[in-house]
Every structure is written in structure tokens, then in C-alpha cells.
């Protein structure tokens, strides 16, 4: 029985080995290798010069995550309370952008946010002063929120939907108003969804690229752009690119571990 199970998993095991484990090992190998092919820590000392890019990447990813959560949680909650056509329409509107190529979506945002773009035309039509938002970190954050919002909403929605209706009725029965029921039952029970939503926005958020180039101009370079440059761009240096990737991955892993711990702690507090 066990053998059979192992056999069934074989294609996936091979896949993992070929496309996950081996590339990871290569990244580690390159990160500790100099241009002369010798072992070195030199790539990491070069990283110090890119502190600002690291800072910006994590800061923008965190900002986008917070905004996604602030917008996405109420949206998920509202959707969970709807049924039928309303829910399906909301779901469609949420998913629709994901079916359009990311470049197209981002170009669309460019034309909206440009100095003479749709947004400013609308503002001037309303006799309001124009905003300069294109080529700022704010535009990048906006683009990221737009891109990653579904990844926040869907896990939260799934978890809220799974909450047993009779548990909510029990809370009402015990005297809980709508607000109390939300605060003391729905919110704590939806935390696992929040946790996976945050992960699914923050992790890809840190390595965002293209969005930052198109909406942020040259001034908002993020780690994704920096890594791309090392492998494909003018400053070809896969050793440095690997080192950046490795450090970014370690920082992301640490952030996730801390957050998971925090999430568990939350639950414990609730239990007390």
C-alpha cells in the first residue's frame, strides 16, 4: 500500500527535484561563487550597496499587504454574506483582472495614472488640482494592491464560508449582537484565512518587478527588478543575482515564521 502511494507521487517527486531542489542548490552555489569560479563571500558584501532597494521592496510589499487586508477583509466578509447572483458577480469582477495579462493590466494603470492620464482628466473636469502619482512609490503600491487583491480575498472568503452557521447562531443566542458575533466568533475563526492571504500577498509582493518599472519609473526599483537586471540586463552578474535572491528568501522566510508565531500567539490569547 505504502509502496503504491510512493509510486503515485513519483512524477511530483521528480518534478520537485528537477525544478525546485536543483535550481535552489544552484542559487546557493552561485551565491557563494565569484566571477573567477572560486568560493567567496564577496557577493554578499556587494549587497550592502543595495540596502535602499531591499528596504523599499519590503516596505512596499508590507504596505501593499496592509492595504490589501484593509480592503480585502471587508470585501470577503461582505461577499460571504451574499448568495446567488450578487456573490457570483462579485466573484467575477474580482477574478476578471487575473485573466488579463499582467503587462496589459499594468499599462492600463499607466494610462490612468499618467500626468495627463484619465485620473487627472477627471480631476480637472471636476476643477480639482491634478495629482502627480505616476513614477512614485505610491503608484507602485497601488499597482501591487490591484494585482494581489484577489490573493487576499479568496483565502479569507473560503475560511469565512466554512464557519458553521450554527456556531454563529449560538453566539447570537447567547446574547451577541452582530458586532459581538463578528468580533468574538467570525474574526478569530477567519484568522487562518488572513494568515494565508497575507502570505500570498507579501511573499510575491517582495519580489515584484515590471509593476515597479512601469509605474514607479526609474526611482522605485525593487528587488525583482534588481535580480532581473543581474540575469537578463546590462549588468550581467548571476553571482550577485543569486546572492540577492538568497538573502531575500531568507528574510521572507524569517518574516513568515515570525508572523506565524504571532498568529498562533493570537489564538492562544483568545483561548486564555
Amino acid at each position: 500500500m505504502k509502496k503504491r502511494g510512493g509510486l503515485l507521487a513519483a512524477p511530483y517527486t521528480v518534478w520537485m527535484a528537477l525544478f525546485t531542489v536543483i535550481p535552489m542548490l544552484l542559487v546557493v552555489y552561485f551565491a557563494f561563487t565569484g566571477e573567477d569560479g572560486r568560493f567567496t563571500f564577496g557577493n554578499f558584501s556587494q549587497l550592502l550597496g543595495y540596502g535602499a532597494v531591499f528596504g523599499r521592496s519590503f516596505w512596499l510589499a508590507a504596505l501593499a499587504t496592509v492595504v490589501c487586508l484593509a480592503v480585502g477583509y471587508p470585501l470577503a466578509y461582505a461577499m460571504s454574506r451574499e448568495t446567488g447572483a450578487v456573490r457570483n458577480t462579485a466573484m467575477l469582477l474580482l477574478m476578471l483582472p487575473m485573466w488579463i495579462n499582467i503587462l496589459l493590466r499594468t499599462y492600463a494603470w499607466m494610462s490612468i495614472l499618467e500626468n495627463k492620464g484619465l485620473l487627472n482628466q477627471l480631476l480637472s473636469f471636476l476643477r480639482l488640482p491634478p495629482v502627480r502619482i505616476i513614477n512614485t512609490p505610491a503608484a507602485v503600491a497601488l499597482g501591487m494592491v490591484y494585482n494581489y487583491l484577489p490573493f487576499m480575498v479568496l483565502p479569507i472568503l473560503t475560511v469565512i464560508q466554512k464557519i458553521d452557521g450554527s456556531v454563529i447562531e449560538a453566539a447570537q443566542d447567547l446574547g451577541g449582537s452582530q458586532f459581538t458575533v463578528f468580533k468574538r466568533v467570525i474574526l478569530p475563526l477567519s484568522l487562518p484565512g488572513v494568515l494565508s492571504g497575507v502570505t500570498m500577498v507579501f511573499v510575491p509582493g517582495v519580489s515584484t518587478f515590471i509593476i515597479s518599472q512601469l509605474l514607479g519609473g526609474g526611482k522605485s526599483m525593487m528587488l525583482g527588478d534588481l535580480i532581473e537586471m543581474q540575469f537578463l540586463g546590462s549588468t550581467y552578474n548571476p553571482y550577485l543575482g543569486s546572492a540577492i535572491s538568497l538573502v531575500m528568501m531568507v528574510i521572507v522566510l524569517i518574516s513568515m515564521a515570525v508572523m506565524n508565531r504571532f498568529g498562533e500567539g493570537e489564538e492562544e490569547v483568545m483561548v486564555l
Binding site: 447562531e169 443566542d173 447567547l174 466568533v185 475563526l189
Partner: peptide
């Protein structure tokens, strides 16, 4: 001022 014991208990899973 009425409380219910539900058919499937409906205890709060996140609370002790």
C-alpha cells in the same frame, strides 16, 4: 431571555 442547546452542540472551536 431564551437560550438554546443546538442539535449539533455548536461549540466555539476556537475557545476552550
Amino acid at each position: 431571555r431564551v437560550n438554546t442547546v443546538f442539535q449539533k452542540y455548536a461549540l466555539f472551536p476556537h475557545l476552550n
